[in-house]
């Protein structure tokens, strides 16, 4: 089944490029170049996946995400950006994006990521994986109001998976390397995404602002 995809980007060239690259493999149900119309059209057309530009005037991708999520939480978002600044990455992921890829991603990889998000899985680029490893590295420095310590630590297995992704392994390579199924890899990654979104580690934001992801 071809997922229904909606594009949001304020650069016409990028929109045209994405359309050309994706049109043969997914059903593109629309595109918008600013926050207001994006929210409106997404709510009207209910796509499976929204490819979302992080940097846009009027609140950026984060604004679209929060607006849509309030009404239609089932719409899934994949953030697409030229920026590698950690505060941007972390802001969209924490706002609910199912993944984050940079615009330099190749077309087949982008397609794979879209299908993955459409299936409800998470998409981690090597950078995002590296970021999570770094942010969750220290054992101490937990927030004061610790409700759920589970959320603030990665399991050894999750750490292994993230390391391989940061090393440039695709999900199926990770699965082969660790002798587990792709489904298991996906569930590990989804659980990391959940921790990333829900963790109360104040460090995440703090760290992101201070160090920036390069």
């Amino acid at each position: 089944m071809r997922p229904r995809v909606f594009l949001v980007d304020d650069h016409g060239l990028i929109l045209a490029g994405l359309r050309a690259e994706l049109a043969d493999h997914v059903e593109i149900v629309g595109a918008a170049d600013e926050v207001g119309s994006a929210v409106e059209m997404i709510l009207e057309r209910r796509p499976d996946v929204v490819l979302l530009d992080v940097h846009m005037p009027g609140g950026g991708g984060e604004a679209v995400l929060t607006e849509v999520a309030r009404v239609a939480p089932e719409v899934r978002f994949l953030a697409l950006s030229v920026s590698d600044a950690a505060e941007d990455v972390i802001a969209v992921v924490r706002a609910g994006a199912r993944g984050y890829v940079t615009k330099s991603i190749s077309a087949p990889e982008l397609l794979e990521a879209i299908f993955r998000v459409a299936d409800g899985d998470a998409v981690f680029s090597p950078r995002l994986a590296g970021f999570v490893l770094d942010a969750f590295a220290s054992e101490g420095h937990l927030g004061e109001a610790e409700v759920d310590p589970e959320l603030n630590q990665l399991t050894p297995r999750e750490r292994q998976v993230l390391r391989l992704i940061a090393r440039g392994y695709a999900y199926r390579d990770v699965a082969t390397e660790l002798a587990i199924s792709i489904k298991t890899v996906e569930s590990h990654v989804s659980s990391v995404l959940r921790k990333l979104q829900l963790s109360s580690r104040y460090e995440l934001t703090h760290w992101a602002a201070e160090r920036r992801l390069t």
Partner: peptide, 9 residues
């Protein structure tokens, strides 16, 4: 070529 660099720590 494109070099994708990730540094942790």
């Amino acid at each position: 070529v494109r070099v994708e660099l990730v540094v942790v720590g």
